[in-house]
Design a protein around this nucleic acid. Structure first.
Length: 223
DNA sequence: TCATTAAATTGTT
DNA sequence: AACAATTTAATGA
């Protein structure tokens, strides 16, 4: 994908005037990140709002003892990081590329200007924040109520939220180990869960790649 | 293009 | 957690 394509697919950018759009394009910086590299680290000052042009990143933290928890995987087409930008605080989480990725950095000044001048931009942010809140509430609910297979199914489907990540791509390039960090279970258990989900014809499992065959079925699996 | 090798990922215990 | 098997990517003939 290119920056242009990302903007074409972003609802907030569709609602900009040509002049606004021109300024946005001029001020966004495009930066590649290699697999395993950091987009930003916990504690970094928040200089920009991020868009994923290509690849896949995760938002995560590592505990003092070294255990890592992934909060969400963020696929191409998504925008994230507005929380810390809005609050003028340092980053609260690490953001790492799970494979070679390309990120759009919108400077905080551009972000603030859109916030002051564009209704569609504000509408988008409200929608996105609301959608995220729903997603994390649901994540807590599912963690406590669902069995492991269903939790893996939900973790996987969370990366295909059509509101947060509009895309027609039905594949994710992610290892089972990374999916285990996202679901909060062991890699071995993810391996078993994927076999169950594959049996149910909800996903197709290939080397390093998962293909969603039935998103609705994945969402409702085990409920 | 094919063979070899290293690295990553998966499958199993 | 450990280990074997499999797949991919890179390298060079």
């Amino acid at each position: 994908m290119s920056l242009e394509t990302l903007l074409q697919r972003s609802v907030w950018a569709q609602g900009l005037t040509p002049a606004q759009r021109e300024r946005v394009v001029a001020e966004i910086q495009v930066r590649p990140v290699e697999s395993g590299g950091y987009v930003c680290r916990k504690g970094d000052p928040s200089h920009a709002w991020f868009g994923v042009i290509d690849g896949l990143v995760k938002i995560a933290t590592a505990s003092a003892s070294g255990k890592s928890v992934t909060f969400t995987g963020v696929p191409a087409g998504a925008w994230f990081g507005e929380g810390s930008v809005l609050k003028r605080e340092n980053r609260k989480y690490d953001v790492m590329a799970l494979r070679d990725s390309v990120l759009a950095h919108m400077p905080i000044a551009t972000f603030d200007w859109l916030l002051d001048t564009s209704i569609p931009f504000n509408r988008f942010l409200t929608l996105q924040l609301n959608e995220r809140l729903g997603q994390f509430i649901a994540a807590v609910e599912h963690e406590r109520l669902l069995d492991t297979d269903a939790r893996v199914a939900r973790s996987l489907s969370s990366m295909f939220n059509p509101t947060l990540y509009p895309s027609d791509d039905t594949t994710v390039q992610i290892s089972q180990e990374e999916l285990s960090y996202l679901a909060g279970v062991s890699r071995q258990r993810v391996n078993l869960a994927l076999k169950v989900l594959e049996q149910a014809k909800l996903v197709k499992v290939d080397y390093g790649v998962l293909t969603i065959l039935d998103l609705e079925g994945l969402r409702e699996f085990g409920m």
